[in-house]
Design a binder for these strands. Structure first.
Length: 135
RNA sequence: GAUACAAGCCACCUUAUCGCUCCUGACAUUAAUCGUCAGGAGAGGAAAGUCCGGGCACCAUAGGGAAGCAUAGCGGUUAACGGCCGUCACACUGACUAAAACGUCAGCGUAGGACAAGUGCAACAGAAAGAAUGUACAGGUAAUGCUGUAGUGAAAUCAGGUAAACUCUAUGCGGUGAAAUGCCACGUACACUCGCUUUUGAGGGUUCCCGCCCGAUGUGGGAGGGUAGGCAGCUAGAUCGUGUCGGUAACGGCAGGGCCAGAUAAAUGAUAAGGGUCAUGACGAUUUUGUCAUGAUACAGAACCCGGCUUAUCGGCUUGUAUCUUUU
């Protein structure tokens, strides 16, 4: 397992890393920059308030009518983020906290393997995009 | 044993690793928090649709009339119901009798009050199903469908049918809905600005009218802002299963036992391995079945809580009935 990574960070996903403040969410959707990395639309914004990176995962109700399907996709994305988030933290420490929204834009229910490869790819791109935005 | 139907029940399992929410305990720490470790608990039969009925909460009492909506044999059940149970009537199906009718039994279905007030509607046939007209034969008259018979049809100036047609009758219904509601925190905040108004009342509440009620810590508009965080409500209840008694049954009484989700951008998951079950095919056997391969393993996610209804659903199990087959 990927337990022994560089920052000896645990693969947890506690409440503090989940984006739940309505204010920040509204700000994120209004001011945040975004890019597409199939099958996700990723919106991000640097924020000083949050103690750590915060993530929001969303699946459109229009594309997936049943709550069970939406829950399943969200759980798989959350799991993939949990196991791959060390990529974000292993960058330089001076980096400010990020608010990130992951919106699933695919039309079918994906397998976990598919999501994991795509998500780690999008995380690497996210780092590049953040640097670009900060300049 | 197989098939069909009906009723009831179950809703794939195990292990490992990494996670999520709540509770309890220990340790450490703080202004509060929070952290670590250990243990325990963690979606459904429909959680769904939100179609009925309640509990609970709040609102300025919710009274009368009209309107509107719902229900509709009778009795019971229940907190309540439009649900459920029983029963009567009617319709249909099957059996009994050689057959039909009638009858009896079984099953299944019924928006099953009133056409004794008014308005409307009525396929085909028929001249005509009311405000219009007339065929054949016979009778009659001053004259005329004036009268009878034939003919059509369930029904013909005599009425009847129809209320999943308006309508009438009886009964019931105040509204809102956990984004309710209360408290704390934050916000220069019962703040700013322009009107109106002070018990002879501005304005407002009730679908409408009358009436009633609220009303200076008032009320109508405007501009620009702030907050959108926490706690309570929030899960021990018309509760769950067991036994027993009453009742044809729905259901109810009593006894002793259990505690069974409480999330909030919304927990109950992900991955791997193995095993079930079902279907198809192949091989071996030809009585049960065995091995291998492939595929399938549903519908679907609590959001204040219950009782129903409706819809979705891979499969499996139990019981009953009917038919067929095998053995004794």
């Amino acid at each position: 397992m990927s337990q022994d990574n560089t920052n000896n960070l645990k693969n947890t996903f506690p409440k503090t890393e989940r984006l739940h403040s309505k204010k920040i969410i509204q700000e994120l959707f209004q001011k945040g920059s975004f890019f597409y990395s199939y099958p996700f639309k990723v919106i991000f914004l640097t924020s000083e308030e949050a103690p750590s990176h915060q993530v929001l995962i969303s699946v459109s109700k229009r594309k997936f009518k049943n709550a069970v399907d939406r829950n399943l996709i969200k759980r798989r994305i959350r799991e993939a983020y949990r196991l791959n988030k060390h990529v974000l933290y292993s960058e330089q420490e001076a980096q400010p906290s990020l608010s990130i929204a992951y919106i699933y834009t695919g039309k079918e229910i994906p397998t976990y393997q598919f999501i994991e490869t795509k998500l780690s790819k999008s995380l690497r791109r996210l780092i590049v995009e953040v640097e670009k935005a900060n300049r």
